[in-house]
Amino acid sequence: MSTQRAVLRQTTEPIPAELTSPTAKLIYLYLDTTGQSTVDEMQQSLDIPKLALFSVLGSLTDTGLVECDGDCYAAS
Rank of each mutant, 00 (worst) to 15 (best):
D40Q: 12
T12V: 15
G64F: 04
D62L: 14
Q44F: 03
D71T: 07
A6C: 01
L51N: 13
A52R: 12
P14H: 09
L8H: 06
C68E: 15
L8P: 00
I15T: 15
L65E: 09
C72Q: 12
L60P: 04
S37A: 15
T23V: 12
S2Q: 12
R9V: 00
K25N: 03
Q10M: 09
D69E: 13
P14I: 08
Y28D: 05
E13Y: 07
D71R: 14
L8A: 13
G35N: 06
S2T: 09
A17W: 05
A6K: 12
L46F: 03
T3H: 11
Q36C: 07
D71L: 03
A52T: 13
D69A: 09
A74Y: 01
L31W: 03
I15W: 01
Q10T: 05
K25M: 14
T12N: 06
G64D: 12
A6P: 00
E18C: 12
D40V: 06
G70F: 00
L46E: 07
L31N: 03
G64K: 04
T11N: 03
E67M: 04
D62S: 15
T11C: 06
P16I: 02
L65F: 04
P49Q: 14
T34H: 10
T38R: 06
I15L: 14
Y28K: 08
D47T: 11
D40G: 05
I48N: 07
E67H: 06
V39Q: 08
Y28I: 04
P14L: 09
G64H: 08
E18D: 11
L60E: 08
I48K: 08
T12G: 00
G64P: 11
T23M: 10
G35F: 05
K50Y: 05
L60H: 07
T11K: 06
F54Y: 13
S21D: 13
A17G: 03
S76P: 10
T61S: 11
